[in-house]
């Protein structure tokens, strides 16, 4: 994705039309498109087909229902709860995650930092940890009665929090799992972007007598605009797919009052627990539509940011 963006920034080749030697290119891209066709396009088409059917695995009677799955979905309160949860979990994970990752990146970008390589590597360790392991460990930490976090809070004289039953606490717990895994990765991306900022900007800021904080706000952040937009796009798409963390945390319904049921989890529940594959396919299409809308908003936003930058430079 970042490569793509860079490619877009490069001056486009004037030469249009396909030359003879370009035909070999098709051969090179064949493996990807074959796999994409089999595992990407066909499932997508089949999903669309399924969405118009009442479809159960191992059932003999699957029949066409038209738009019934969709009209049910619009009126389904649990679907809208899942929409709400997906976005609220996204916000309580994305915002702190970005702030912490930025701060970490600034610290790591400091040229006087000892063992810089070691710290950078350490940041990636959570990211390569299996989500399952993260989910299981955090579920124990957030346990209602004897979870370490509640025990620690009790020790500090704080009230006990129901990290599973409560809507906001449970979502905070899930956001914590997501953050723990992704902060380091994000920090590395920001670090790369910070290291790419021309030194001259910092030097002139220093000459102008800017404080560290001012340098961060007026030099670093504006220079990270593109990266921030990119992370927002990737983050929203990732956020809309939050699945395994809530599944491990509280099963397919996302808690007894669906307090942390997300969109993909609801899809999973309908398909693999209730066996309603047609309805689940309709949910899948709804997720796609939501992703398209969000991506479009992101696109508008990023164009605006890119435009501003153009004026400045």
């Amino acid at each position: 994705m970042s490569l793509l963006q860079k490619a877009k920034m490069m001056p486009s080749r004037k030469a249009a039309g396909i030359h003879a030697h370009d035909k070999w290119g098709f051969l090179y891209i064949t493996p990807f498109f074959t796999i994409f066709l089999l595992f990407g396009l066909l499932p997508i088409l089949f999903t669309v087909y399924l969405a118009f059917y009442h479809w159960e695995l191992l059932s003999e009677a699957n029949y066409y229902v038209g738009f019934q799955n969709f009209s049910e979905l619009i009126k389904d309160p649990y679907f809208w709860i899942a929409v709400r949860n997906t976005f609220s979990i996204f916000f309580i994970s994305f915002v702190p995650q970005t702030i912490v990752a930025l701060l970490l990146a600034v610290v790591l970008a400091n040229p006087h930092l000892k063992f810089a390589m070691f710290w950078r590597t350490m940041l990636l360790i959570p990211w390569i940890t299996s989500v399952l392991a993260v989910g299981i460990v955090f579920s124990q930490l957030f346990g209602r009665e004897f979870g370490m976090i509640n025990v620690a809070m009790q020790y500090l004289g704080l009230p006990q929090v129901d990290w599973v039953g409560g809507t906001i606490p449970s979502q905070v717990a899930i956001a914590t799992m997501i953050n723990w895994r992704w902060v380091g990765y994000n920090a590395l991306i920001y670090l790369a972007a910070i290291l790419a900022i021309p030194k001259e900007l910092y030097e002139s800021a220093e000459i102008d007598g800017a404080s560290r904080w001012q340098t961060f706000i007026y030099v670093t952040i504006p220079q990270l605009r593109n990266t921030l937009t990119f992370m927002l796009v990737v983050g929203t798409i990732g956020g809309l797919q939050t699945f395994l963390e809530p599944l491990i945390y509280g099963g397919a319904t996302g808690g007894d009052s669906r307090q942390f049921s997300t969109l993909t989890l609801y899809l999973f529940e309908q398909a693999f627990i209730n066996g309603r594959f047609g309805y689940a396919a309709a949910i899948g299409i709804a997720i796609t539509i939501i992703v398209v809308i969000i991506s479009f908003l992101n696109y508008l936003g990023s164009r605006k940011i890119a435009g501003e930058e153009g004026v400045k430079s």
Partner: peptide, 9 residues
Amino acid sequence: KKVTRNRKA
């Protein structure tokens, strides 16, 4: 994006 979603799913 749809592809990624499906793969991820």
